[in-house]
Write a protein that binds this DNA or RNA. Structure first.
Lengths: 335, 335
DNA sequence: TTCACCATCTGTATCGTTACAGATTTTTCC
DNA sequence: GGAAAAATCTGTAACGATACAGATGGTGAA
């Protein structure tokens, strides 16, 4: 026992507790993590004192010794600005982490190199787990983290054979459901304002869309010039052009609320009215879309739940769970 | 989640560089931080090798030794969900931090105890600086951080004498400008849907509002039952009730875009039309409000800029700058 | 009695970094 | 030439935690 008298203005460490209890530092450490080689009464005593003096393990110490950071990193690209669902994700994740020792670090990156933050985190081990979004079918970030054995969960699926934890929204089902709504209102010429090509949920959305049309005996119109990720001003301009075109659709499926608003805005500028000249079905997450135009048909997507699920999944993976068992496909909920 | 064995060896440390250069670990450390007692050619050599092998300082090591975390903590309360401006703030902060070694940690808290996360971070020194929002006139968090000499910056001012870094939006000016717009459209009975009482910007908004009315020779109507922070459904309900009331206003100033949408939504349910029965001026941040109703009069607020400024300010405070010189009052920009 | 064995507890080394107090060499100046 | 000063460089000891290999003492079996 090499304990010095402890000055009590400093933050307590294991040494402080060791001094107060007359035990060794090692014993205190083991006691606090409920190690098997420590007597029950000793554990009680240590826990009591630790609680009384408000001991909190020094994260730098733990991290240096064990490599454990107690950090989950959420990687976001700056593109997503303005869409507001990030807040919901962040809160969902925070919620799930609040009862754990984990912290949430938000790591942004520009579109130029999506791999860079992932590589940085893995190489420097600056987090125990990663959450990424906007997955591509053959996402290099997923491949990389798998090859490195690094725990992660993705918002969105991939085509990669080896299973990984994910939370995804059933966009095929969304598209089919959307078409059902439009068909039931007598719409015949249905178009899709879908996600950008590169992202995997583009495929799900399109395949659901095509299947839905087939079931309804209709043929397809997919907007090629524009996707739901484009700047709102572009989508609006596209909408206006579309409204003036002769073979404009009378039904629209929109993969994002903001894109829907922008598109409607443009269509209205060309004199078309939602609910009359056309109907539109859109995903709704944060803001109630019906307050914008009550004629919009909405289908809910819950990003807070996504955040919660993703956080819990990464933690599970970190604790050795099988990624294959941590996959969730959320069913659209009509609103 | 097991992967392939990691391809190359261990992560390089100072020891690695010391071995490669034949220098001592201390020398390498000093060289990399450009210490004065190291020869110029040695520095060059060390830097070169460090760069070649991709050396990155181990943050846990630095933190344990120096106490420096290289972390800025943004404290958010879960209430703010759905308002979407958080994304903008987060990106603004990230942008400012991207060229520095600092990371952004998002620390949420429930409304129950706003002090808890602040105390935790200060006590455990788990960040080098803190950013808080939604300040009260005599904000206990500010008092606490000041008393502890902890670097921070606030989104919003306080009444506290001792200066601290802040970024605030000139809500008094906003209200006055808003009234000018309304008066110029012949509105005579103007009401305010302002922020909650407890927050300091409530006072600024109200005083600007009252002054604006006085200049226009009008008298005031302030909604007492509702504020811009309330759930949107409540605001909408209030709007509907208001629309049916006999002494309803013909001009409205709204402190938040979402609140404005909710209120309009309610007023419309009671048969009132914006631009006809009433005009409304609202703050606009992420989404273009005119796409919702083109008659809304908007005044811009830039949260991304706020985030940037706040991040730069905390860093400056950390580096010893005078908080009094890090105060910014953003002027409203009419849109 | 002896000794293996278990239950508890402890000291030492270590993670990567930097502060500090030397150590060594070179330069300067008389 | 020699001593003091300056310029470089180095080893050791922390920071707080944990892995590991011993200690210590008590128990029960032979």
């Amino acid at each position: 026992m090499q304990g010095e008298p402890s000055p009590n203005d400093e933050r307590p460490t294991l040494k402080t507790i060791a001094y107060l209890t007359g035990l060794g530092v090692t014993t205190v450490s083991r006691a606090l993590k409920d190690g098997p080689e420590i007597g029950e009464d000793t554990k009680q005593r240590v826990r009591l004192i630790a609680q009384q003096i408000g001991y909190r393990p020094n994260r730098a110490g733990v991290r240096l010794r064990t490599g454990k950071t107690n950090v989950i990193s959420l990687i976001l690209n700056t593109h997503e600005e303005g869409y507001g669902f990030i807040s919901a994700m962040v809160y969902g994740i925070s919620e799930a982490l609040s009862s754990t020792p984990y912290h949430l670090v938000v790591t942004p990156h520009s579109l130029s190199d999506p791999m860079e933050p992932v590589r940085y985190i893995v190489e420097t081990k600056s987090a125990d787990g990663i959450i990424i979004s906007r997955t591509e079918p053959n996402d290099p970030r997923v491949r990389y983290m798998q090859s490195q054995g690094f725990p992660f969960a993705t918002h969105g699926r991939t085509e990669i054979e080896r299973p990984h934890a994910f939370y995804d929204y059933d966009n095929a089902e969304f598209a089919k459901e959307a078409i059902r709504h439009l068909v039931s209102r007598g719409r015949k010429k249905i178009a899709l304002l879908g996600p950008p090509n590169a992202l995997y949920y583009h495929k799900h959305t399109v395949s659901g869309f095509l299947e839905g049309l087939k079931q309804a005996g209709l043929s397809a119109v997919v907007f090629d010039d524009v996707d739901s990720d484009r700047p709102m001003a572009d989508i609006k301009a596209f909408g206006e052009k579309l409204g003036h075109s002769d073979d404009r659709p009378d039904g629209i499926v929109a993969s994002s609320a903001m894109a829907a608003i922008a598109l409607i805005s443009g269509l209205e500028d060309s004199g078309r009215k939602v609910g009359q000249d056309f109907d539109i079905v859109a995903k709704q997450s944060t803001m109630p879309l019906n307050w914008y135009r009550k004629e919009i048909i909405t289908i809910d997507e819950d990003f807070r739940e996504a955040g919660r699920y993703l956080a819990q999944s990464v933690l599970a993976v970190i604790n050795g769970a099988e990624p294959a068992s941590l996959q969730h496909l959320a069913k659209p909920r009509g609103a």
